[in-house]
Every structure is written in structure tokens, then in C-alpha cells.
């Protein structure tokens, strides 16, 4: 191995992932709580405002008592941005991450929600395996992002291979209709991840990556995407779905778009719906 490589030991990755799992499930980000508070000023439904207050109260209880804010502590999604100058020592990176999930869910009294096979449905019992995505990046950093993704909102997510003639208007309609259809099942107010372009699978991952963006509401760097975010958010909050799907103006707190080049024939659009328990935690080793 090159002598200049920075070494990161698997034990450190395991400990960090375990800690991030517990923090994510029990400490709702201040960005999300601020989103609830801002929505209290614009929500016209009395019941909607009451629900937003309860979400703030729920987050307080969870944080104070180290209790999961939601019993569905999710499918553990992990993104690693791994500098190409980093050498992982002491084991295999994926094993270290899964061991972190195993420990975090056990020590944090987090619910295990994963079954071994979609058809035989035998629980794994420790919430592993995590859904792990590794991006190799320049430099010697090791950045870990953990998102315990709730099942109810994930089930309302959708993808469509549009065609170029559908254009921006077609893409916008597809995304807003997906938000309306998600309704009460997705636990609004939502953070909506949108993947535009790429291939079938790339679009879906872009949408997932978009819900990792924090603080929520940070606009896309590309102005085409940022304008699309603003337009979807405005329309989403006119659908009437509202907090918990019981009517109101607060259907989405934020819309995040990630885009990628695509084929001449294609306009893939993926919508990954994130419930109000938008639980991203990250750190760098």
C-alpha cells in the first residue's frame, strides 16, 4: 500500500454508524423543527396547526427521553463519501457499517424492521443489512451519512420513464400528482426528493440522494433544478393534503431535486417521499 494513504479503522466506522443511527432516530434536526414552526404561521387549518404543534412536542419528548420519534426506525440508508486517499483497515467496510447498524439498533432500543427475503419475510432481527452506497471522492476524507428511512412514506414513492415531449410540464405534473397521491399514508408534511434524468436506477438513486440533503430546503446548485424545486413546493402546498393528510396548506416542507444527463429518448423522473421524520445525521471521520 502507498505510504501516504490515510488509514481509517473499521472499529471507528462501526462506532460512528451506531451513534448516528441512535441520534437520527431520537433527535429530530433543528432544520425540520424550524420547518414545522414556519408552517404554523402559514397553515390555515386549525387541525393542521394542532398537528404541527404535536409534531414539535413529539420531537421534544423523543430528544429528552432518547425515545425514537417514530416506532418505524426505518431501513437504514447509508451514504459514504470515501476519499480515494483513504485506506480502510481492520476489516471490510460494508461489514463495519452493518455491525454499526446492528449495535445502534440494539443499544438504542430501535425497532428492527427488515425481512430476509421479500417473499419468505423472515425477520433478520437486527435491522441489517443497511442499504449502503459508496461514492469515491477526491482527497482523504471519510464522510458518513445515515438516514433511517420509514416504510410508510417509502411505499408511496414512484418512478416513471417520461419521454422528451412530456417536457418540464409533464415532469412537474407527475411529481405533484405523486405528492397528492401519497396523501395521509406518507405522514406529511413531507420532504420530497426528485431525481431527474440518468437511467431507470440512477433516477431512483438521485431521488434518494436528494432527501439526504441538509439542512432541508437548501436549494439545488443548478438553477434549472432550483426553479423546479420552487415550483413543485408551491403546487404541493396547494393540493390541500395538509398535516397528516387531514387537510391544509402544509403538505411539503421542502423539495430537493438532483439531476443527471440522460439519453436522447428519455426523461426519467423519480419521486422519493420522505415523511416528516426526516432523520439525516452525518459526520466526518
Amino acid at each position: 500500500m502507498g505510504g501516504d494513504m490515510r488509514e481509517v479503522h473499521c472499529d471507528q466506522i462501526t462506532e460512528t454508524i451506531a451513534r448516528l443511527c441512535i441520534e437520527a432516530c431520537t433527535e429530530l434536526g433543528l432544520d425540520v423543527i424550524a420547518g414545522f414552526q414556519r408552517s404554523l404561521e402559514t397553515e390555515t387549518s386549525e387541525l393542521g396547526r394542532e398537528i404541527l404543534q404535536q409534531l414539535i412536542e413529539n420531537a421534544k419528548i423523543a430528544g429528552h427521553e432518547k425515545l425514537p420519534m417514530c416506532q418505524d426506525t426505518g431501513f437504514t440508508c447509508v451514504i459514504v463519501e470515501l476519499g480515494q486517499e483513504v485506506h480502510i483497515t481492520g476489516g471490510y467496510l460494508y461489514d463495519a457499517i452493518n455491525e454499526g447498524v446492528r449495535r445502534g439498533y440494539k443499544d438504542g432500543l430501535l425497532r428492527s424492521s427488515i425481512v430476509e427475503h421479500p417473499l419468505d419475510r423472515k425477520p433478520t432481527g437486527d435491522n441489517t443489512p443497511a442499504h449502503i452506497h459508496v461514492d469515491i471522492v477526491p482527497g482523504d476524507g471519510c464522510h458518513l451519512y445515515v438516514l433511517p428511512k420509514g416504510g410508510g412514506s417509502e411505499q408511496t414513492s414512484t418512478l416513471k420513464m417520461l419521454v422528451p415531449s412530456d417536457g418540464r410540464e409533464g415532469a412537474l405534473k407527475f411529481v405533484v400528482q405523486a405528492i397528492a397521491n401519497a396523501g395521509p399514508n406518507a405522514c406529511p408534511p413531507l420532504v420530497v426528493g426528485v431525481g431527474l434524468g440518468g437511467t431507470f436506477d440512477k433516477a431512483a438513486f438521485l431521488a434518494k440522494k436528494a432527501i439526504f440533503r441538509c439542512p432541508i430546503g437548501t436549494p439545488a446548485q443548478n438553477e434549472i433544478d432550483a426553479q423546479f424545486e420552487r415550483d413543485v413546493l408551491e403546487l404541493a402546498n396547494k393540493t390541500g393534503v395538509g398535516p397528516s393528510g387531514l387537510g391544509g396548506r402544509t403538505t411539503a416542507l421542502a423539495v430537493h431535486v438532483e439531476s443527471f444527463p440522460c439519453h436522447l429518448v428519455a426523461l426519467p423522473v423519480a419521486v422519493n417521499i420522505q415523511c416528516h421524520a426526516a432523520r439525516v445525521k452525518h459526520t466526518s471521520i
Binding site: L55, N58, A62, L67, C70, S244
Partner: peptide, 8 residues
């Protein structure tokens, strides 16, 4: 019941 109010 309001979804995501598990702690409360």
C-alpha cells in the same frame, strides 16, 4: 391516529 407521533 396521527402518523409519526410515536413518542407522544
Amino acid at each position: 391516529a396521527i402518523g409519526g407521533l410515536g413518542a407522544l
